[in-house]
Each structure stands twice: as structure tokens, then as C-alpha cells.
Amino acid sequence: MAIKHLRAAYAAQLQPGNPARLRLGEPLGEPGGDYEGLQKQMKRLFNSKPGKKYGRFSEDTGESPFSAWLKDYLEDRQSFASLTDRLFKQWQDLLTGSQEEHQGHLMVVHEALADSDVVYLLVLETDSALRFDGQQALDTTDVLSLSRLNLAVRIELDDWLSEQGSENYLTLVHARGTGEIGDHFIRLCGFTNLVDVEKETLTFLDAVEAFAKSSEPEKAGEVRNRAYEFCKEQHALGEPVEIEALSGYLDEDQPQRFKQFASETAEIPESGVLHPDHRKVKKLVRIAGSGGGMSVSFSSDLVNQAIYYDRDNDALTITKLPKALREQLQRYLEGREES
């Protein structure tokens, strides 16, 4: 990872109805050091965030001109400083019109990867911390939060600018509870949602489950496990699932077998890329449910081995109890008997 350009600005709207305050930082070229460390942590939070959305820039550049400004910067028609001046000013204007309070840092990062360039817009949050001041008296100060990231967008520049690139070159983190500020951020970056993550998750699950059932019985569990592991690894990298790559991962001897099967049995996008929710993909390897004061979760591999379901009586029989659960049950029963 190498940061080409980075700039941050502090923006605050503490009295709705009044102009938002803005303090600009200096544009930095190849800052290295602590900035690289901060960006690495923000990327880790970005990649691990569940429920990300995927899409492209809005065509309404009048309302969301960021894409036009970004293209001018990439084509050397304006500097990074000019690009961020405009972006931060629009952020200030959006916050001025907000009825919600907000304060925090907006950071723009142009990063060079091994095979592509990306740009991040990140709304950094702060935590309060205690310190001793120069008089050795306790004082409070704000520090950047390294554990929270609720608003951010990543632009895959090569995919955006390539004539045959993906239509889903924007990845958005838009956490629940961000309210009006979250809506303003979406307008700032000009994000338009094109991917139905829920639908693509069901497509992925159905295709893998059907493929597992078509495999030899002793290999069905391995198919589900490998599909889940692949999806989990892609999520950790912040990448979608390419059906061709997954196909090769599931069967190294016949790397096209799953791809061919999925194309015939499921509605796979022409791009051959799916964006499943990794939390729901876990259903491939775990069976879970809760209700009526009970919560049960176990590996699907244990069905008919240590866990047996009687459909007629709607009863679940569990053998080979985990040691911790067995000890808890014994203590509870002993306590009941003593009372």
C-alpha cells in the first residue's frame, strides 16, 4: 500500500440553522508513516463492515458533482488540492442545511495498490480520552476512533474508467443510525445503489446448496465448507465473489464444474460476480435458531452424527454434549435438588 495523496478536514454543525464550521488540513503527497498506519486500520474496518452496498456514480452531476471533479483530477485538469477544496466546501454546505448536529473529520485518500488505484472518502469519528495536562491535572481530549467507521466509500478507479469495467465500482459503508448525516454523505459521493445484496445472497446460497446436493454425499459438507471459507476470505479482503474463482476453489481438478452448474441452475449476473452477505452465507455451515427462551446453534456437519431431528415429533436429540454445557446442566440440577 502506498498513499499518493491524502487530505483531511474538520467539519462541525453544532447549531442547526447556522453555517457549519470547516477547518482544512494541508494536502499531503506520499505522507507515509503514521498516515499509512491510520489508513491501514481504516481499510481493516472498511473491509470487515457487514452490510456494505455496491453501485456506481449518479448521473446527476449537478446535485453530486464529485465524479466530475474526480475525473478532472485524474486527467490532470485540476490538482488534488483543488479537488478536495471543492469536496470539503460541498460537505460544509450540506452540513449547513442539516437539522442534525455533527462534528468529525472527512478524509480523502488516493491510494496506489499493486494492480490498481483506489480513492477513499472516510468520515472519521472520535473518542474521548483522559490525560494529565502540563499542571498534572486531569483533562479530557478527543482522539481518533480506531474501532468505528460508519460512513465511507471506496472508488475502484480502474473499474470506473475502463470501457469494459464493472458497473459496481463503488463500495459504500452506510451504517444504521447515521440518519440525515448519512444521507448527506451519500449525496456528497454521488452513490447510486445497483446491487440487490439480499437477492445475490439467496442466489449464492441456492447455487452452492444445489451443487452440494448434486455432489457425492460424502463430499457435500466439504463443498459447503469450502464455499463459506472462500466467501469469508473475500469479505476479509473487501472483495465480492467471482464465480469462476470460486469454481476453481471448490474443485481444483475440474475448475469449471461449479461455474457451468451455476450458469445452468441459477441467475448469475453477466459479470459473473456476486456480492453475498457473509453473515447469511454462514447458513451453509451452521444451523441456528432462537425463540421461546431458547437459542440453538451447531455445525451442519453434526446432523445425524451428534444431533438428530425427529420430524414427526418435532424433537431434537443432542448427544455428545459440549463439556461446558454438561457442567452447567449438572450444577443447575444439583442446585435444584438441594433447594
Results as ranks from 00 to 15, higher is better:
18 N>A: 11
80 F>K: 14
101 E>P: 04
127 D>W: 00
62 G>S: 14
29 G>R: 08
64 S>D: 13
75 E>Q: 06
45 L>D: 07
69 W>R: 06
93 D>H: 01
104 G>F: 00
59 E>H: 15
22 L>C: 06
69 W>D: 10
78 Q>R: 11
44 R>L: 05
98 S>V: 08
11 A>P: 02
70 L>S: 13
13 Q>W: 02
92 Q>A: 09
111 E>K: 03
30 E>W: 03
52 K>W: 13
102 H>R: 11
60 D>A: 01
65 P>V: 06
126 T>A: 15
61 T>I: 03
82 S>V: 11
36 E>S: 10
99 Q>G: 14
90 Q>W: 00
89 K>A: 10
108 V>Q: 00
125 E>D: 03
123 V>L: 06
54 Y>V: 09
25 G>Q: 07
67 S>D: 14
82 S>K: 15
127 D>N: 07
128 S>K: 06
54 Y>D: 01
107 M>K: 02
49 K>Y: 13
64 S>K: 15
44 R>Y: 13
11 A>D: 04
118 V>T: 04
15 Q>K: 10
105 H>Y: 02
28 L>I: 07
110 H>N: 10
26 E>H: 02
11 A>L: 13
76 D>I: 10
128 S>C: 14
76 D>G: 07
12 A>N: 04
68 A>R: 15
19 P>T: 10
13 Q>P: 01
108 V>F: 04
60 D>Q: 06
20 A>K: 05
14 L>D: 10
45 L>V: 07
17 G>Y: 12
71 K>H: 12
95 L>V: 06
71 K>L: 03
114 A>N: 05
54 Y>F: 10
88 F>Y: 04
40 K>F: 15
108 V>Y: 00
25 G>R: 06
26 E>W: 00
40 K>D: 06
76 D>W: 05
88 F>E: 04
93 D>A: 10
126 T>K: 11
122 L>Y: 00
76 D>N: 15
87 L>S: 09
35 Y>C: 08
80 F>N: 15
78 Q>I: 03
96 T>K: 01
91 W>L: 05
122 L>Q: 00
74 L>H: 08
38 L>C: 03
101 E>V: 12
37 G>Y: 07
39 Q>V: 15
125 E>A: 08
104 G>L: 06
80 F>I: 13
18 N>T: 11
46 F>V: 09
27 P>K: 12
53 K>C: 06
38 L>G: 01
112 A>K: 08
40 K>I: 08
31 P>W: 00
86 R>V: 10
56 R>G: 01
126 T>S: 11
58 S>N: 14
31 P>L: 07
60 D>E: 07
52 K>P: 01
39 Q>A: 15
32 G>I: 08
111 E>M: 07
66 F>M: 12
101 E>C: 07
48 S>Q: 14
71 K>G: 04
51 G>F: 14
38 L>E: 01
14 L>N: 14
69 W>P: 03
88 F>S: 10
88 F>N: 05
102 H>E: 11
50 P>A: 13
16 P>V: 04
11 A>E: 03
68 A>G: 11
75 E>A: 02
96 T>M: 04
52 K>S: 04
71 K>M: 03
90 Q>I: 11
29 G>P: 03
79 S>L: 02
77 R>W: 05
82 S>Q: 15
48 S>L: 13
32 G>P: 01
77 R>G: 10
